[in-house]
Every structure is written in structure tokens, then in C-alpha cells.
Design a protein around this nucleic acid. Structure first.
Length: 724
DNA sequence: TGTAACTCCCCTCCG
DNA sequence: GGGAGTTACA
């Protein structure tokens, strides 16, 4: 049989991976080695071999990655002609395939999104109602905080860890599958003394979530694994997939590894793909052991290594390889490229942050003039706020940009408030959301809300009974408005939308296997935008009282309403928003239009899997990369090194690593006017020869400059204010 | 008893 | 800026 033309486009290793038959396959793919292309080609090969699309499961790290993969498969001519037309069957199907399209679709999405979907279908097997809520990090923290106070853990003489730390500890236990004592000893040694309290707290937390039918991110995985362990549902799920492909396997954790093992079942048709040098999610308990131990977990696995880089010019690879050359633990893999260039990447010494901003702007515009559109350029930062000053400068010069990563839309208080109102409509047992909503009302604090919650619990969460509850007289008017609102939205049944818990619904009526819910009697099927509009009527006067910058917030709420309009049901909207939040609205210079060209600002984490012609890494300063907060042990430092490696290997043709020599002191640091800084330790003097050294000269400091710097510092405060 | 106003910290990456 | 804890007032 002669080889199709498109297969000939792949290099021998890529082709071997794409055409691999049945059985486990491990693809070690360095940065820019055409990993996505290879996986996409493999999907096409599977389809051509007659594997039905809906029996293929594609697990990716972000949903964007899943969509990209499917887009690539469609690019193969033979694939689009195939009977198995390819569509992505999202983990939770937001817009999903058009209604007219009945072709089976590939299952694709993140572990969390697929877990969400499977649990809504099969969750009963693990005593989970299909209406469960999904909590994001802040919801989980709020719940922990509530319980921490209830258990009296906050007022101990010895300081008890804060809610964020509690959640980190809990999450690490779950994801690394290690007992609390061991996690405390190794990762949180300063909390060892609180082990008993934490144990009680976590037990209460687990019980609390169960009562409210709520799952946090970790639970999605935990319940998925539990589901796989049930003899009936587990076997059915394993049976329904013939081939499983996992991207970015180096960033999965032990729990996900166990899920995969069970998902693979006896067929063992598992393809995993990853690069240990790009493992940057250790803080989420990801472990490279998954990829290293794959051959042990799946004996007889084929292993294919992709080393030819198609992305970057050789000098950029040389520099990146040099950085990784110092890694303590490394699985040798030297990327090489056919793409020659005379130009080494630049190491840009800036005098201060302001000069760094000017340099970036100038360089971006120079590339633009030379024919590199803004879309093909990016500025990468370690953490989101390090681009604040640059954002001001970009706006001043009318350079459009979009920002990825960092403070998210959903974390803004006003957005959370509105969602909490929707949540209690979807799942009235959600006490965390109730608390949030009740606290909005003037005159209601912890005591009154506790009382109301007790009333609700005693009355089966019926909203019709809510206004019989006694509240402080000062709170009465606002409280009655809330009752009226919920009453209206709950409809004529006099109860909130989903009062049922496990077993309360008609057991014979399970959700359809594929496609969005088509329940005709679902009261939320059509009305979410209308619901949000009604909620906003109630909420508008409240938030204008509570928060500043009402107009900026109102715009966010409008945006939320628009997003909601694209969803079929409240449940989809809420879980989708939690699992795949919009990247941000922080581009306060205004959302650029689709057809416009814009520069990308991104955290390095969010840049994973992306590439640009020109990449500028700013604040490559020791203390920022590696972060001062992440230098606890050598594992953390190694992860920071890989982070720099990931950032550098995003660049195709031009790479600039910039760092300011001094930082100006902030207002509260009295005394010193500025602090001196050093280049990141990951680029030691011995390897600086891999870079061109650009030492920017500064005009003589004048009082004008000082004023300009002060103004920029003020402008940074302005940006923060946008988010208050 | 419970809420509102005040002060003192600290601030990472993401599903 | 915002969370956590403390104090002042209804």
C-alpha cells in the first residue's frame, strides 16, 4: 500500500508515531518538534484505520490545545473527506457541534472537563447527583475558611495556616496521593504542628462538600478515579474508548496517572506525549515520574523521541540548551534545527524598569516595520503583575495588546457575586454561594447569614419559605428584595431549580450519552440571559454601594451576560466557566477587534504550547526568575529553570532576554530609593557567549526623567485600581 | 450580640 | 489592593 502524500511530510520519527498500531506508545517530544502535528496525524491515521471518532479520547492540558489539535486534523485533506468527519466533542460541550451535525465526534478536553462530563453521566455510581456544583479555588478556600472558624481553629494561640495554605496542603495530598503527615513534613514543614487540626478540617471539608453536592477541582479527578474503580461504570467507561491520547503528559500528576491506567483497561491503547524539560506544574503536584515510569506502567510500550526542532533558529536553541545544560536531573535530548541564523539571542541590560519598557516598545515597533505583525510577537513574564508598567507604556503609544494569565475575570468580586446568585439557583444546597449572596445585603453579617442558612436547611431549601425567616430589621428591605428575586427565578414551583440530591430524580431518566442535554422541561434551557438581566436589576444598586469603580465592573457584568447567551443551560454555563475561564479582561485599553493586530502579553505558564516569531522575556532578574517564593528547595529551583527554558523555546526567529539593573523602591519601603538587581542565575557568565550583550545606554538622569518615572509608577497604581 | 470601621500585614504559576 | 484580625459602636 503506497503511503499517502501527507504522511510523507512527516519526518521518520513523526511518521512512526503517527502510524503506530495498537498498544502503548510514549512520544518524547522536545519543544517545537512538531508534537501537535504528530498527534493530529496519529488521530487521522486511527480514523483511517476505521476507529470511530467517538471512541477516541484526547486529553490535553488546556481546552485551547484540544481545539488546536482538532483544527490540525481537519487540515489533512484525507481526514475531512473521511466518513468519520472530525469534530471536537468538548468535555462539557459549550457551543459543541452544530445541531445539524450528527457525525460522531472525538472526545477532547482537559482531565477536569472530561471528568465533569463523565461524572454528570455516570456519577450516580459514586453517589453523586448530576446537578453537582463545581467549585473553583476561591470557592474551596471560602468553604475551608468557614469550617476553620466553625472548628475554632482560627483563634488558637498558635497560628493556624491561612485558607489558601490549607487548600494547598489538601490539594497536594489528593493529587500526589500521599498522606497528610508526609506532605506536611516535606512540603509544608512549618505546619507540621497543625496536623491534627488540619485532619479535622479536611474531614469536615469533605463532609461539607458531600452535603452540598459540590466538587472542587481535585474532587473531579478523585471522583473520576473512584468511578473507574466501580466494577460496572468503570468497565463501561473503559470500554467506550478504543484509543486514548494524552498531551503534555509531563504535567500530569499521580492521580491522573492512575486514572489513565484504569481508563486504558485491557486494550492498553494509550499514547502519551511530553517533554520532561518542560515540566512546569510541580506546584500542582505534577510529576515527571509519570512520563518516566510510563514504560513500567505499560510494559512493552514503544518509545519514540522527536528531536528535530522546526520552530527556532539554531542560535536560540543553542542558548536554550545551554540553560538546560545546568539542570541537575536531565534526560539528555539535544534539540537541533535546520533553521540557520547569524543572529544570537540578545541579553538586554536595562538601567531600570522604565527603560526596559521603552526598549520593548521600540523593539516591537521595529519588528512591525520590518514586516512582523504584532500577532507574531509576545512579551513573557513570570507573574502577571510584572507587565503592569509595560501595559501603561503600550497604551500610551497606542500599541494594542492582549494579556493572558494572571488575575482572572472570575476572581473579581463582582463577577463572583453574580455567579453566586446563579449558583444557588442551580444548586440551592451550595452554602458557600448563599453566604456570599447574603453578605451582600446591608445589615447581614456572619450571624444573620448563619441563621438564614439554618432556616433553609430545615425547610428543604424551599425559597417560598425563605421570607418567613427572621432577619435583623435593618436588613429586612434588602432581604425581601432577594426573596422576591429568587421567587421569580425559581418559577411557579415555589422551589429552586435543583432541590434533588442523589436518588431523588427519576432514576430511569439518564442524560443522553452524546450532545448537550435536550431536556425539554429544563427551566433554564432558554432563559439564562434573561435570568442574568433580572439578577443584575437586583444586584446593580448593591454593588454600586459596596465597590468603587462601578462602571468598570458594570462592563464586566455585561460581558458575563454576553458569554452566558452562548450557553444552553445554567449548569453548562457555570461548570464551563469554572473549568475554562475566559483568559482575562485586563486589557483595559479595550478589547481589540478580531481583525486587528495585537501584541501578546502572557505569563510563561500560559505561553506553554505557543510560539511567536519574536519573543521578549522581561524581568529576567534573579528573585523574579527564579521567584523568591519558589527557592525553597532544589526541586523548585529546577522547575524555575525549566520555566526559563520553556519561555526561551517559544521564540522562532528573535529572542530578547531583558532585565533591569535596578528597581525603584515602593512608597512603603522608606529609606532606599532603589534596589540593585542581577540577571537570573540560570544564565551564568560561562554561557553568556551564547547571547549578544546589549547594554542600553541611558541619557544623563535629569529631573524630567525622575518625574517621568514617578508618573509611570503612579500609572501602575492606576492599573491596579481598575481591578478594585 | 452582631455589624461596621479600622489597622496590619502580604502579595506565584493554573484546572 | 485586599484579606485577616481587632476594636468601636448600635
Amino acid at each position: 500500500m503506497s503511503e499517502p502524500a501527507w504522511l510523507a511530510e512527516l519526518n521518520p520519527q513523526q511518521r512512526a508515531a503517527a502510524t503506530h498500531g495498537d498498544g502503548p506508545l510514549l512520544i518524547i517530544a522536545g519543544a517545537g518538534t512538531g508534537k501537535t502535528k504528530t498527534l493530529a496525524a496519529r488521530v487521522v491515521c486511527l480514523l483511517q484505520r476505521g476507529v470511530p471518532a467517538d471512541r477516541i479520547l484526547l486529553l490535553t492540558f488546556t481546552r485551547r490545545a484540544a481545539q488546536e489539535m482538532i483544527r490540525r486534523t481537519q487540515a489533512y485533506p484525507s481526514a475531512s473527506r473521511s466518513e468519520n468527519a472530525i469534530h471536537l466533542n468538548h468535555g462539557t460541550e459549550l457551543q459543541s457541534a452544530p445541531a445539524t451535525c450528527h457525525a460522531p465526534s472525538i472526545w477532547g478536553g482537559t482531565f477536569h472537563a472530561i471528568a465533569n462530563r463523565l461524572l454528570r453521566q455516570y456519577g450516580r455510581a459514586v453517589r453523586l447527583a448530576p446537578e453537582f456544583s463545581v467549585w473553583d479555588q476561591t470557592d474551596a478556600e471560602d468553604a475551608l475558611n468557614l469550617l476553620r472558624q466553625e472548628l475554632g481553629l482560627h483563634s488558637r494561640e498558635k497560628r493556624f495556616p491561612k485558607k489558601g495554605t490549607c487548600l494547598d496542603i489538601y490539594s497536594r495530598c489528593v493529587n500526589s496521593r500521599r498522606p497528610l503527615a508526609s506532605v506536611l513534613k516535606r512540603d509544608f514543614p512549618w505546619c507540621v504542628e497543625c496536623e491534627d487540626g488540619l485532619k479535622r478540617l479536611f474531614a469536615a471539608y469533605t463532609e461539607f462538600k458531600e452535603r452540598q453536592q459540590a466538587l472542587d477541582y481535585d474532587d473531579l479527578l478523585l471522583f473520576w478515579l473512584a468511578l473507574m474503580k466501580t466494577p460496572d461504570a468503570g468497565a463501561r467507561i473503559a470500554e467506550r474508548f478504543d484509543h486514548i491520547l494524552v498531551d503534555e503528559y509531563q504535567d500530569t500528576n499521580k492521580l491522573q496517572g492512575e486514572i489513565l491506567l484504569r481508563l486504558a483497561g485491557k486494550k492498553r491503547n494509550v499514547t502519551v506525549c511530553g517533554d520532561d524539560a518542560q515540566s512546569i506544574y510541580g506546584f500542582r503536584a505534577a510529576t515527571v515520574r509519570n512520563i518516566l515510569d510510563f514504560p513500567k506502567q505499560f510494559p512493552g510500550a514503544a518509545i519514540i523521541t522527536l528531536e528535530q526542532n522546526y520552530r527556532s533558529v539554531q542560535p536560540i536553541l543553542d542558548a536554550a540548551n545551554a540553560v538546560m545544560g545546568y539542570a541537575r536531573q536531565r534526560f539528555t535530548k539535544n534539540l537541533w534545527s535546520n533553521r540557520r541564523s547569524d543572529q544570537r539571542p540578545a541579553l538586554v541590560h536595562c538601567l531600570d524598569e522604565a527603560q526596559q519598557c521603552r526598549f520593548v516598545c521600540r523593539q516591537v515597533l521595529e519588528h512591525l516595520e520590518a514586516g512582523v505583525p504584532l500577532r507574531k510577537q509576545a512579551v513573557l513574564v513570570r507573574t502577571a503583575h510584572w507587565s503592569d508598567m509595560l501595559e501603561v507604556e503600550l497604551a500610551r503609544r497606542n500599541i494594542p495588546f492582549r494579556k493572558f494569565g494572571g488575575l482572572r475575570f472570575l476572581e473579581a468580586a463582582h463577577v463572583k457575586d453574580l455567579l453566586a446568585l446563579l449558583r444557588i439557583l442551580q444548586n440551592p444546597r451550595d452554602e458557600v454561594s448563599w453566604c456570599r449572596v447574603l453578605h451582600l445585603l446591608p445589615g447581614i453579617g456572619p450571624a444573620a447569614s448563619k441563621n438564614i442558612l439554618r432556616h433553609l436547611a430545615e425547610n428543604g431549601y424551599r425559597v417560598a419559605d425563605l421570607n418567613r425567616c427572621s432577619v435583623p430589621s435593618a436588613a429586612r428591605p434588602a432581604f425581601e428584595k432577594l426573596c422576591l428575586l429568587l421567587d421569580e427565578l425559581a418559577g411557579s414551583r415555589g422551589e429552586l431549580a435543583w432541590p434533588s440530591i442523589v436518588g431523588n430524580r427519576d432514576p430511569g431518566r439518564s442524560r443522553p450519552d452524546v450532545g448537550p442535554s435536550s431536556d425539554a422541561d429544563d427551566p433554564h434551557r432558554t432563559g439564562i440571559p434573561a435570568q442574568i438581566a433580572r439578577i443584575r436589576e437586583f444586584y446593580d444598586p448593591l454593588f454600586r454601594d459596596i465597590y468603587d469603580h462601578a462602571e468598570a465592573r458594570a462592563r464586566d457584568l455585561e460581558q458575563l451576560e454576553q458569554i452566558a447567551a452562548t450557553f444552553g443551560s445554567c449548569e453548562e454555563f457555570l461548570s464551563e466557566l469554572t473549568l475554562d475561564p475566559p483568559s482575562a479582561t485586563s486589557d483595559w485599553s479595550g478589547e481589540p477587534r478580531k481583525d486587528e493586530d495585537w501584541l501578546t502579553l502572557s505569563t510563561i505558564h500560559s505561553a506553554k504550547g505557543c510560539e511567536w516569531d519574536a519573543v521578549m522575556i522581561i524581568h529576567a532578574t534573579d528573585g523574579i526568575i527564579p521567584s523568591d517564593l519558589a527557592t525553597g528547595d532544589r526541586y523548585e529551583i529546577e522547575e524555575e529553570r525549566r520555566l526559563l527554558y520553556v519561555a526561551m523555546t517559544r521564540a522562532r526567529n528573535w529572542l530578547y532576554v531583558c532585565f533591569p539593573l535596578r528597581y525603584y523602591a515602593t512608597k512603603n519601603e522608606l529609606g532606599d530609593r532603589h534596589a540593585f538587581a542581577q540577571l537570573t542565575r540560570f544564565i551564568p557568565p560561562e554561557i553568556r557567549g551564547k547571547f549578544e550583550q546589549w547594554k542600553l545606554t541611558m541619557p544623563q538622569p535629569s529631573s524630567d526623567d525622575a518625574v517621568a518615572i514617578m508618573q509611570q509608577t503612579d500609572a501602575r497604581a492606576e492599573i491596579r485600581a481598575q481591578w478594585t
